[in-house]
Design a protein around this nucleic acid. Structure first.
Lengths: 250, 250
DNA sequence: TATAAAGGATGACGTAACGTGAGAGTCAAT
DNA sequence: ATTGACTCTCACGTTACGTCATCCTTTATA
């Protein structure tokens, strides 16, 4: 079964405009559209929409929701479990606020004393631990950080950096036919590791390995990297894992 | 005891910028400021802030919160009770969402069937009855017949009206240093009187004089009016009395 | 089958509630 | 006297839509 915008809007309780917006930003593009241009939402679209709305309720910005849903390792059931945890957490906060209100009323009646911190219990922005987990699992914090740094550089610095970058990738591309464990490959990977560390702050070995994983898991990365040569992403990914393991032992 | 912005910010868990913003829009102006311009928040300010944040948590827009808090019949304890009710309601919604998640997971495992409505239970925008109550008691709706009329106007008419309103207040503010009995002041007050009569039905001179009294007796009115200039409320109040007396004689 | 009402599409501008510097002054401790 | 942490006021940027305006389909009804 397929639904038109208004039907979806009424079914799930969002505005038509919102659906348009989600389409605009590529968060939820209906799988089908009639020749007239009318949007037709599928069952699957509804499932995605449910996910979107849960995340939204939990305070995630749309952009973040998008990257999470697009993440190749995104898993709906796992997400639901996490969302559940976050909701329970949120309910806890509400309970605290209710308690705070009760106390405040009593305080007004002179029955009890109240510290100023107590006055705001539950309202405060206590970052939810599960939120972090979601971001780590499916978000791209590290990549975002890196991009921010990149943009903070001057034009010249950016240029310089991209040249170094280019050199390394070309070198790696030329090596990709041999083993990722070869000395040359590992040396090139070390260069890559150092470059990242010099420019984007601390890349722990864990993060480095994770980055390598992303190169093959996330097709946006894969595509970009493979422009230097088919299979480069896979090659780098493996070499990075090897590198991380080696370093770990030493 | 007094607090500087950052202290308040950390105590209650909002950003300094937010506090600046609340000051900018006249939602929460610190009672005191040092000669250097530093904001100093009082105990009372904190109480107001608590109210603001509760309402915000419940989804009220700042503008609405402002009019509610400024409403002369606003009662803090009553508000707390209502807020409590709304929070309980909200908690109920969260419980529903949790249930929805549980069902969805079961559904994914093929254990149960799920209608499309069930899929979005709790997420939907179900307007909270207590919200309406709050709006009725302290929102714009309460200010009486006058505002009903106001709301019956079209957007354009409303806009036009508020511009006229604004013009008159600004004019009055510019005159407030001279005598309330001066010809100019009285002319401006007449404009004000006419505007009220044209838009909100009959304002007897009695009522007009009474309104003037409210401007100084009720600090919430005073605050609002004095945003156009310190002492404007007092000035208008006097000018309105003078005006009413004069009209009465003729 | 014509015709209107209802719904849909695409701009494009508006709004709310801050975030995010920039540039400059202030306070408190050393 | 200096320095580092705060503070102030612009002022522009951002997010997630709301709100027309204008024009085009679809559908219900006569």
């Amino acid at each position: 079964m397929k639904w038109k915008v208004k039907e979806v809007a009424e079914l799930v309780g969002v505005s038509v405009r919102a659906l348009h917006h989600y389409d605009e930003i590529g968060l939820l593009t209906p799988t089908e559209t009639m020749e007239s241009g009318y949007r037709l939402y599928s069952e699957e679209n509804l499932e995605t929409l449910q996910q979107i709305l849960f995340f939204k309720e939990l305070g995630f910005p749309l952009k973040e929701i998008k990257t999470m849903l697009n993440n190749p390792s995104y898993d709906r059931k796992e997400a639901l479990v996490l969302q559940r945890k976050m909701l329970v957490e949120k309910r806890g906060r509400i309970d605290q606020m209710i308690e705070t209100i009760d106390k405040t009323i009593k305080h007004m009646e002179g029955e009890i004393h109240m510290t100023n911190e107590e006055r705001f219990k539950g309202i405060q922005f206590t970052s939810n631990p599960y939120e972090e987990e979601a971001r780590k699992r499916w978000g791209n914090e590290s990549v975002d950080e890196a991009n921010k740094k990149l943009q903070s550089l001057t034009k010249d610095e950016q240029h310089e950096l991209s040249e170094k970058w280019d050199t390394i990738f070309k070198k790696l591309a030329s090596l990709r036919k041999q083993s990722p464990e070869s000395e040359e490959a590992q040396a090139a990977i070390k260069e890559w590791y150092d470059l990242l560390n010099n420019n984007f702050g601390q890349y722990t070995l864990e993060a480095f390995r994770g980055l390598g994983q992303m190169y093959i898991q996330d097709e946006r990365f894969t595509k970009n990297i493979d422009q230097y040569g088919e299979g480069l992403a896979a090659f780098m990914s493996e070499a990075m894992t090897v590198f991380a393991n080696k370093q770990n032992k030493s």
